[in-house]
């Protein structure tokens, strides 16, 4: 790995570890100066960029990945008393959830507790036995899988979804490419969706959900297949969308310290609590 590539990778990893641009710039400049003066190979001098960035993050006391809390806006998604049974087995019982503009809600719970069903009900793709869902604005939905057309390229997906949102072709392509770049992905125009890896297909799925800047984003485990870097990029993007005033609901079964959210809806016990 040549020094320039290593330094660029280090800058990315520092950002992923929540190191601010000033400190990250300083660390990269110091590392560049050391490499230039010593003539050493970066891997032998510092090790892999990810490991060095982690060490830097530890040395500065660990990053505060939680973006500053902002005052939430208007209610965007209001779920009241949603109940759903499958073959007499209750899956959801009187579930309530309120998500305002500028808030992230995580829907968690054990396998089979109805997380995806809940999100499909919120998106209007499935009907509950009882209950109402009120949406103030437009909805973007990212399914867990199978939300793409295998024989279309990523850019054709952007055009297809963009046309539904009323976007001209060039605007849809521009938006899709920009959102792909934010997830560290540059779509190759000739590659059909069926030939993409699982993680890349999920990136496409996520970008499709974001087309047209919907007010409410419903994301059903959108990071399946993501590598660690993309996973961190994803959460940085989610925080950015929250700061832009979006209401976001993320279905997840992996809620660790990185996944800072405002509301947690645990469907195992169907209790809503503020994080």
């Amino acid at each position: 790995m040549n020094p320039q590539v290593w330094l660029a990778a280090l800058a990315g990893e520092l950002s992923r570890h929540g190191i601010g641009p000033d400190l990250a710039g300083h660390v990269v400049a110091e590392a560049a100066a050391h490499l230039r003066d010593s003539g050493e190979a970066p891997l032998s001098a510092f090790g892999p960029p990810a490991a060095y960035a982690a060490a830097v993050a530890d040395s500065v006391g660990g990053p505060d990945l939680r973006p500053p809390r902002r005052v939430p806006g208007a209610v965007r998604l209001n779920v009241r008393g949603v109940t759903k049974r499958y073959r007499r087995r209750p899956v959801l019982t009187g579930v309530d959830l309120t998500v305002r503009a500028g808030e992230i809600a995580a829907v968690v719970g054990a396998n089979g507790c109805g997380k995806s069903t809940f999100l499909r009900i919120c998106a209007g793709l499935a009907s509950p036995d009882r209950g109402k869902v009120y949406v103030n604005g437009t909805v973007g939905y990212c399914p867990q899988d199978s939300g793409t057309c295998g024989f279309l390229t990523p850019e054709e997906h952007f055009v297809l979804i963009g046309a539904g949102r009323g976007m001209p072709r060039t605007a849809a392509l521009r938006t899709g490419r920009a959102n792909a770049a934010a997830l560290d992905w540059s779509p190759v125009s000739a590659t059909q969706a069926r030939h993409l890896s699982g993680g890349t297909r999920q990136k496409l799925n996520l970008i499709m959900a974001r087309m047209g800047e919907p007010d409410v984003l419903l994301l059903d485990e959108p990071y399946q297949g993501f590598d660690r870097g993309t996973y961190l990029d994803f959460w940085h993007e989610v925080w950015r969308w929250r700061d832009a005033g979006k209401a976001i609901v993320v279905v997840t079964h992996l809620l660790n310290q990185l996944d800072r959210v405002d509301i947690v809806l645990d469907l195992t016990s169907t209790k809503e609590r503020v994080a």
Partner: peptide, 12 residues
């Protein structure tokens, strides 16, 4: 169809 449990309103 738009399901009856889902009600949309314009963003305020």
């Amino acid at each position: 169809r738009q399901r009856s449990h889902l009600q949309f309103s314009s963003p305020r």
